[in-house]
Design a protein around this nucleic acid. Sequence first.
DNA 1: TTAGGTGCAAAACCTTTGCCATCCC
DNA 2: GGGATGGCAAAGGTTTTGCACCTAA
Lengths: 125, 125
Amino acid sequence: MRRTKQKEAILKVLRGTRSHPTADWIYGEVKKEIPNISLGTVYRNLGLLSQSGEILELELCGTYSRFDGRRDSHYHFRCENCGRVFDVDEPVNEEIDGRIARKTGFRVKYHRLEFRGVCKECQKG
Amino acid sequence: MRRTKQKEAILKVLRGTRSHPTADWIYGEVKKEIPNISLGTVYRNLGLLSQSGEILELELCGTYSRFDGRRDSHYHFRCENCGRVFDVDEPVNEEIDGRIARKTGFRVKYHRLEFRGVCKECQKG
DNA sequence: TTAGGTGCAAAACCTTTGCCATCCC
DNA sequence: GGGATGGCAAAGGTTTTGCACCTAA
């Protein structure tokens, strides 16, 4: 991966905030330093950086939302190869929400836990 | 929320699968029963149903991706009111991935844990 | 009766891509 | 020099919305 001033600037913005910004917000910030940078470049670099592990893309949804008809709380496993989502049969940790609430002062309603990796079928290939 | 045959059909499809489908797949299934249903209706009903808690929308990302400049593994809290994402200072559970891997046969690389609720600032309002 | 729901189509939106110029190694 | 990048703009694909017509309650 080549080092460019655009990439540096994006990284600097990202390291300098704790706000988990969107691509568009990053674009706005970087624009202050490189006025003619394009949004496409921001996206391309975010992709490169997260691919190389230098940054983290939160909640990589695939591209579209998925829905679940189960009403009980449960966890998920997402295969990074085929994109499928499986239910995981692991007891839900009931006490952790309260602990986080006490620690942070936030009102915690519930939590979402998702494992990532490669499903059985994709391991064969 | 009014009961309509479209809503019933969507719910039936969703309850009858374990595949965590996308809106578009659901649309295709429901179309078999109600050929002239529109994709807009599917989206509207999925919204209503998940709002009322009858179904679960996985990975409600807001609409766009968010990025994080931190490289170490950590957890997040997402405020359902203002949409902001915060880091949570809770030690990462290192052993759970192995346990899930043994149990499921999947290769588990890591997990993503996100708490949901209302942040301190939004509680004031 | 009437507020909420539906179909259709267009709009909105975020993200990706093609093309060509430019820059780093 | 030559392949990787950048800028620009158009394309892509999912989701939302406006509007006029229904329909469940």
